[in-house]
């Protein structure tokens, strides 16, 4: 209930800023990042472990695939992941433009599609993450190193990663959807708000990665 309320409030532009500020007294008005130096390495590594658990969860990793451009499925009721059914290849475009568009089934819609086994919707065109952002098959350390490298994370610094999460929520994107996928699908640990906080803490600690 708390998560749903927070997301609903965050999606309402007029309510977003007060909610964010009330969640964390130590953030500046323009950023959710704790002040530099206020989070130690140990705390930052602990935050990273929670972030890693989210990023390596199939709900989040399944569209972060490599250059074969084949999305992964973890079907509701199944534990084992497998290639997306229907011989789907998203192509180098990563949106399926070459053969069959992702949006042929995954309609672009701000309304959720919670019917079991029906294709989920988000508020912009369904797509794979850019190929540089591959997570499937990578270790936590590899993902950590990759995520803090602006050349492989869309040119984002630590605050930029947090802003990315917030922007995705504003446009009904993939990231908050992961915690509200419907249709009996499994979810990553924690909540979207927990994840934002952990990414911010990890960033404030200097984005430490496990040795």
């Amino acid at each position: 209930m708390r998560k749903a309320l927070l997301i609903a409030l965050l999606l309402a532009p007029s309510a977003a800023i007060p909610v964010v500020m009330s969640l964390a007294a130590d953030v500046t008005p323009t950023s959710e990042m704790p002040a530099a130096g206020s989070v130690g390495k140990t705390e930052g590594l602990a935050a990273w472990k929670r972030v890693e658990a989210v990023l390596t969860h199939p709900r989040c990793a399944n569209c972060h695939v490599g250059p074969d451009n084949i999305p992964i499925w973890t079907v509701a009721g199944e534990k084992k992941s497998r290639p997306h059914g229907m011989n789907i290849h998203a192509g180098d475009s990563r949106i399926g433009a070459e053969t069959i568009a992702c949006s042929t089934c995954h309609m672009t819609s701000t309304a959720p599609n919670k019917l079991a086994h029906a294709p989920p919707h988000v508020g912009f065109d369904w797509q794979l993450a850019p190929v540089d952002f591959v997570w499937v098959g990578k270790s936590g350390v590899e993902i950590c190193t990759q995520l803090k490298d602006p050349k492989r994370n869309g040119g984002r610094d630590a605050a930029g990663l947090v802003e990315h999460l917030r922007h995705d929520a504003e446009v009904n994107g993939f990231i908050p959807w992961a915690w509200n996928p419907g249709g009996g699908r499994e979810m990553p640990p924690g909540t979207f708000e927990d994840h934002v906080k952990d990414v911010a803490m990890w960033g404030a600690a200097g984005q430490p990665c496990p040795e």
């Binding site: 568009a101 089934c105 294709p119």
Partner: peptide
């Protein structure tokens, strides 16, 4: 099937093949 698993309802929307069982008329 009603859940975009079979393709029998395929139409074109703005030139793109789409499963019409998944497209809400309000959009």
């Amino acid at each position: 099937c009603g859940i975009a698993q079979c393709g029998a309802c395929t139409v074109h929307i703005n030139g793109v093949a789409v499963r019409s069982c998944q497209a809400r008329i309000g959009e």
